[in-house]
Nucleic acid binder design. Structure first.
Length: 287
DNA sequence: TAGGAGCCGTGCACCGGGAT
DNA sequence: ATCCCGGTGCACGGCTCCTA
């Protein structure tokens, strides 16, 4: 088992296609097929199930994926550690959509300028999904939302992860332009909540806030632009940080109700700090 | 240093599945 | 039924490493 075999395995797992993986890797498909088969023979397990033309990871493949990600990341880290000039290699950062839009641009610009040798990959998602990916070694660190209210489980496991606060967000319920002002959830005139995926911390906080007073039907949307558009029609409320609302065109036309403060944490697996992570962390701390 | 063995990548042909 | 696309197998050539 060598690193190139792992690269090939990861590319096929990611693309679910030999042809797309081969094109991404700059190899011919037959070579990719051969290398995958060799790896399967060496491991004594079928990593993929061939379903027609689709290459799907088997259960063994899913298990091996975690290890392959760890091995590749460790190799990158080892190469980076030997470079006196600073961190290098790939660095995978998971982030909430809102953080990526409103907070990260200046941090990323600073990081890229300081460490051009680091190939940074940004993956967006909800807090729960990001934590799962971090624990599965599919990410090197993640920016997650951590509410202060009790009773909301984000999946943040302090035994296996460690993190520090990098931002504080003012979370808002976003109300349609002509909705009367509210003091609590019972004052709502609509029963639809436009929100992102189920693992989104902000969505969980909004649902927790409305619990008991109103049963909100969730309209699941893919972006904050779509959320604001849904709110503007008058049929739904939304939930987003003030920093995001301020960036959206039309954001000043809706009404808001404060939902409290949410910490954004920069988290990593406990005890694992690569040179690239330290450099990334400094980009936040030193502003 | 030269020759052989083994490994790896490429090119081509073939097969099967899906779309039209 | 036909065509197209994607996965696979095989032959071949190039490269590297080992040994005499």
């Amino acid at each position: 088992m060598d690193l190139s075999s792992l690269d090939i395995f990861l590319a096929v797992a990611d693309e679910q296609s030999v042809t797309r993986a081969s094109s991404r890797l700059g190899r011919v498909p037959s070579n990719v097929t051969t290398r995958v088969k060799q790896l399967e023979q060496e491991l004594g397990a079928a990593l993929f199930s061939r379903e027609g033309k689709r290459m799907r990871l088997t259960q063994e493949g899913e298990v091996f994926l975690t290890y392959a990600n760890r091995l590749i990341a460790l190799a990158d880290e080892a190469r980076g550690a030997l470079k006196p000039s600073g961190p290098a290699g790939s660095f995978r950062v998971g982030t909430m959509e809102s953080t990526a839009a409103s907070r990260l641009p200046p941090v990323l610009a600073k990081f890229h300028a300081a460490w051009p040798a680091v190939s940074l990959k940004l993956i967006t998602g909800g807090t729960k999904g990001l934590i799962r990916q971090l624990l599965a070694h599919e990410l090197d660190c993640a920016l997650i939302g951590q509410p202060s209210v009790e009773g909301i489980d984000t999946g943040y496991d302090v035994g296996r992860l460690e993190g520090e606060r990098v931002f504080t967000e003012d979370l808002l319920i976003v109300l349609p332009p002509r909705h009367p002002p509210i003091a609590e959830a019972a004052d709502l005139r609509v029963d639809s909540l436009a929100a992102l995926e189920p693992g989104c911390t902000y969505r969980a906080v909004a649902e927790h806030w409305a619990r008991g007073a109103r049963r909100l039907r969730v309209q699941e949307l893919a972006s904050y632009h779509a959320m604001l558009a849904a709110v503007s029609t008058g049929n739904a409320i939304g939930v987003m940080p003030r920093s995001v609302l301020d960036l959206l065109p039309g954001g000043s036309e809706v009404q808001t109700h404060p939902l409290g403060r949410i910490e954004t944490l920069l988290v990593r697996r406990r005890g694992e700090a690569s040179p690239a992570f330290e450099a990334f962390r400094r980009a936040f701390v030193e502003g």
